Computed example of a mutant assay.
Amino acid sequence: MDVRLVRPSVVYGEHGATEGFRTSNDTWVRIERRQRWRISSAVWVGLEAAATIRGVKKPEWFQSATWIDPARNVVWRADEVELITAPVVGDLATAATLPDSWWSGLRESLAALGAHPTERVGMSQTHLTKRITEVFGDIETVVDEWATAHTDLHWGNLSTEGHVIDWEDWGVAPRGHDAATLWQSALPDPQMAARVQREFADDLDTRSGRLARLLQCANAIRAAARRGSPTPLSEPARAAAETLLAELGNA
């Protein structure tokens, strides 16, 4: 790839399988490894495939390289992308300081993304139905509107300048899925959750948007059940779910 990694700049991924480095070319290289039998073809090329999307503020993709490591039975992938120097939003305190222009920019990015045609699947009807019914029982979950989504839109994947990062899992999902994911991450702060709902009301107040939010509530409640105790997300998710179920006619 003809770049030199600036080793002290390393940032490790949450699960220890990725590293990111600033380079001698003032770009960013993300290195990932996976066991050979755990490679999902869609996820593996997600960042590269996202280079076809227009109208979304995101790091530009330049090149990639992949290779097999037989000794450890893993496959490596390195992607060189545009270096984004703006920090990620990261938390609700920082989110509360974002200007109106940041929100309007994100709406424009998600609208452009939603209109982008793709055969990639970000969230299937089967998965949504399974997760919702596990928590809320046998209710009607058929989604009537679909759009292309990032599928992992939380404060750690948004920069303070409005860049959307981490494009491994993007694909078609229920309309409002991205806004619902951001809304779920804002639930510990009622004012911020209300802000997200207000900014993306056009999507979140549709049937598909309500189902997308109900899915996020189910995910938060399931996570607390596995943990064996409430989380900052689970209790507000329970309250929000009651309202959503009523709005969907399942009270």
Rank of each mutant, 00 (worst) to 15 (best):
V89T: 00
V89A: 05
G90P: 12
A93Y: 10
T94W: 04
T94C: 12
A95Q: 03
A96S: 15
L98T: 07
L98V: 06
P99T: 10
D100W: 11
G105S: 13
G105L: 02
R107H: 13
S109L: 06
L110H: 08
L110T: 02
G114I: 12
A115I: 07
A115M: 12
H116M: 09
H116R: 02
E119A: 15
E119V: 14
V121K: 12
G122E: 01
M123G: 05
S124F: 06
Q125P: 10
L128Q: 09
L128C: 09
R131D: 11
E134Q: 14
F136I: 07
F136M: 01
D138A: 12
I139T: 04
I139D: 03
I139C: 06
V143I: 08
D144L: 06
E145T: 15
A147H: 03
A147P: 00
D152A: 14
H154S: 03
G156I: 07
N157C: 05
N157A: 06
L158N: 01
L158G: 02
L158K: 06
S159H: 03
S159D: 02
T160I: 08
G162N: 00
H163A: 09
V164A: 04
I165Y: 06
W170Q: 05
G171V: 03
A173G: 10
P174E: 02
G176R: 00
G176E: 04
D178F: 02
A180H: 05
L182Y: 05
W183L: 07
D189P: 06
Q191V: 13
M192Y: 01
R195L: 15
V196P: 05
R198M: 12
E199S: 07
D202P: 09
D203K: 01
D203E: 15
L204V: 10
L204P: 08
D205G: 05
T206H: 10
G209E: 03
G209M: 04
R210F: 07
L211W: 02
A212G: 12
A212T: 07
